[in-house]
Design a protein around this nucleic acid. Structure first.
Lengths: 143, 143
DNA sequence: AAGTTAATTGAAATAGGTTATCAATTTCAA
DNA sequence: TTGAAATTGATAACCTATTTCAATTAACTT
């Protein structure tokens, strides 16, 4: 009895619609992925290589991209790497970043998100995800 | 007599503070960069290779990164490439990006910016710059 | 239950964008 | 003008992500 019934059902639905197969690897990767809020392919690869040393990195990438198409994950390019966000973890958060010391504070602001929706609607867009980063100096670095 | 006195002054100030030198290449790249609203290193390379065939791609990358440090440019990762935004282009603008066709709509929203300031203040930060990107589907790609 | 077909996998090669290396050149201060 | 230090161009190296391909596996058929 898996903990992720809903997500697994979603995945199976997507697989069925596209003549894709439900494999041991996809199940393994799904379980590991859903425990995270966001993760890179590389990190997931290392986590899983303990359980199954033969699982290839290419399979991780292929499967994470599959999750994106199935609506379970969302890719976000952050620096040089791609973060795969777990969509079922609804608390999306934004970042305050100190350019001096690198400190990162996460925050969430409903008012900002509402205004974002307004802007999108006004331009005919439907937002699937977003990124907001505020760069500046934290209290300790202001001198 | 360059058109970009202000930006050039900013660059020279940064160079002076960091024991860096003002070179012919940096001047060339600055002039070309400031004519754009945003551009990739590759694109800039091709534009400039007509004027100066010996200008190397590595120099473009180095210089664009320098501009980021000097506060003239801002890097934005889109897909596999990096867009360098011209900060001096009137009023900072944010982006609505279609994940399907790549269409980019620029917008500005004072209310969002005000809320950002509030969040920063609440966390003891002083914002120097920010980045807001909304990803989704444009009106034409919603089917 | 065995056979068939098409999707999937792992390993390695490849791709694409960006950065590091290094000898030669250029800037800038003395 | 000279000399130390930064910069450049060419290319190699790097890193992340995708493609290739033969072997394997899932799922449908009989």
């Amino acid at each position: 009895m898996s903990k992720h019934q809903k997500e697994m059902a979603l995945l199976k639905e997507h697989l069925g619609k596209h003549q894709l197969k439900y494999t041991r690897q996809r199940e393994l990767i799904l379980d590991a992925f859903l425990k995270q809020e966001h993760i890179t392919a590389e990190e997931l690869y290392h986590q899983l290589s303990r359980k199954d040393p033969h699982l290839g990195l290419a399979t991780i990438y292929r499967t994470l991209n599959l999750f994106c198409e199935a609506g379970l994950a969302q890719a976000r390019h952050f620096g040089t790497q791609t973060q795969y966000d777990n969509v079922s973890h609804k608390g999306h958060h934004d970042h305050l970043i100190c350019t001096e010391c690198g400190k990162i504070v996460e925050f969430e602001n409903c008012d900002i998100e509402r205004l974002q929706e307004e802007v999108a609607t006004r331009n005919g867009f439907i937002i699937k995800t977003h990124r907001l980063e505020l760069y500046g100096l934290c209290s300790r670095c202001q001198h």
